[in-house]
Nucleic acid binder design. Structure first.
Lengths: 254, 254
DNA sequence: TTAACAATTAACAAAATGTTAATTAAAAAA
DNA sequence: TTTTTTAATTAACATTTTGTTAATTGTTAA
């Protein structure tokens, strides 16, 4: 087409990949869980040997969207290219288009977040070397001088993760297929600060009644695990129930 | 800059403007409220006299984003240009970038929704003639053959309106500064289907305890209105309380 | 006066939540 | 073998919230 429209200089897809790592803190103890974000270190030269903008800085993975794909597909493609993993939950959460955000020109970033289980993460580690890709706690990431406006994008992504963790069954994507309640609790507590979750008695009384998880059975008997405790703990899995909440129905916290 | 990146052919900002109209159904009765969307009819010729793509079809208002502004600012600008109204709540909710969505080329749409009170709507009507701009009920709008993928965008916008109406104090933007409970109830019922809202006894018992609204006082006395009833009804206003809900705290509906 | 009617309020039963204390099961120590 | 320890429950009960039905209130209009 002829240039009858004012056109941007580029359209990129950026991805904030989050995972929650488990650190064994002792035998028969629930592991310490922590939210981490995956960042890449921008190389000095691009594919064509030209020096790279913002080289050497840490940044969100991503790249230019191709004309025959959507930004969502580009995110899938880049994730597969960079991590070798497919099937992760990808969600668009914002667009970054402030003039001057990228010195290369008028470049629009379509931002996504991804929630990956530790298992997915493990296969990633095989495709990248540690000098180019890293997993950072949020505290660590806040110390870094990130490329472009990726600091803002990361902050916003975190906000969406928190919101979706509270409002949806997002926790599912950080957990194995079958999990015990303390694992769910641990995942939730990495981003949510709520006494009804952090108080064991309250959480363990309420959790088994949550309509979107169900106890796993084996030969008709409750399936239990000793992964994290001497006492066998009931295994649960998420079902397809989509919970709905409303500020006009439920008790509210500020 | 030189074209070292693959570039889109255009970047647009589209706006789904929603309002809730009140229809007087009788004296001393709560009016019938209905959600409506504002659409414009695409003219045959563009500003330069060339024939317009998708001419004659109804479409969301919007337009190309200029290089020195964000899509959000473009939405503000276009709204002001088209409706003469400023200060409306504008919210980004999605990006539409499927190849082929616009026959003119690779054009990315950054989509927003706007929630306008009827008052804001009234001033709009002065700046546009009825043949080019229209307010449609959602039922009416679904009958129309909308331009581009605006049907999809509109459907998605509606979904976000419903979600935000349930999860935030979005209703505020559809109401006057001071309102009676039946007005709030009416607004909510235009998009939410919930017995705890539609059942008068339940709603009127719960609503006065909602932390994000407060009774209006006048000279230290409750301020009341006879707008919609013979019995004076208490006036309320929204305060700044930001309610938080969670699927792990509250009773859930499917 | 009385009927009508939206807007409440009252009263009470039913559910859900918060909290403290007990119980359970298996490993590890004595 | 017995006891201790610890995470994972379960029990019990008080407190809050919610759902529901029935009454009350204040005003207009007949």
């Amino acid at each position: 087409m002829n240039n009858q429209f004012i056109t941007p200089d580029g359209y990129t897809s950026d991805i904030a990949v989050f995972t929650i790592t488990s650190e064994q803190v002792g035998e028969y103890k629930p592991p310490k869980k922590e939210l981490k974000i995956m960042l890449i270190k921008r190389s000095e030269l691009d594919h064509e040997g030209n020096s790279n903008m913002e080289a050497g800085k840490w940044a969100l993975p991503g790249g230019f969207v191709l004309p025959e794909e959507t930004a969502f597909q580009a995110a899938e493609r880049r994730l597969a290219e960079e991590t070798g993993v497919e099937g992760l939950k990808i969600k668009h959460f914002g667009v970054y288009d402030s003039p001057g955000r990228d010195l290369r020109g008028w470049i629009i970033s379509n931002a996504h977040y991804v929630t990956a289980s530790e298992a997915a993460l493990r296969s990633r580690k095989k495709t990248y070397d540690a000098s180019e890709i890293g997993l950072f706690t949020l505290a660590e990431a806040l110390e870094l001088d990130l490329a472009f406006d990726h600091r803002t994008i990361m902050d916003d992504a975190l906000w969406f993760i928190k919101k979706d963790m509270a409002l949806t069954t997002l926790a599912k994507h950080f957990l194995p297929e079958e999990f015990v309640l303390s694992e769910l609790q641990g995942v939730l507590l990495t981003v949510l600060d709520d006494p009804s979750i952090s108080t064991d008695a309250a959480f363990f009384r309420k959790a088994p009644t949550l309509p979107f998880i169900e106890a796993v059975l084996e030969d008709g008997k409750p399936k239990k695990s000793n992964r994290y405790s001497k006492t066998p703990a009931q295994l649960y899995r998420f079902n397809d129930f989509q919970p709905i909440v409303s500020v006009y129905r439920n008790k509210l916290q500020g």
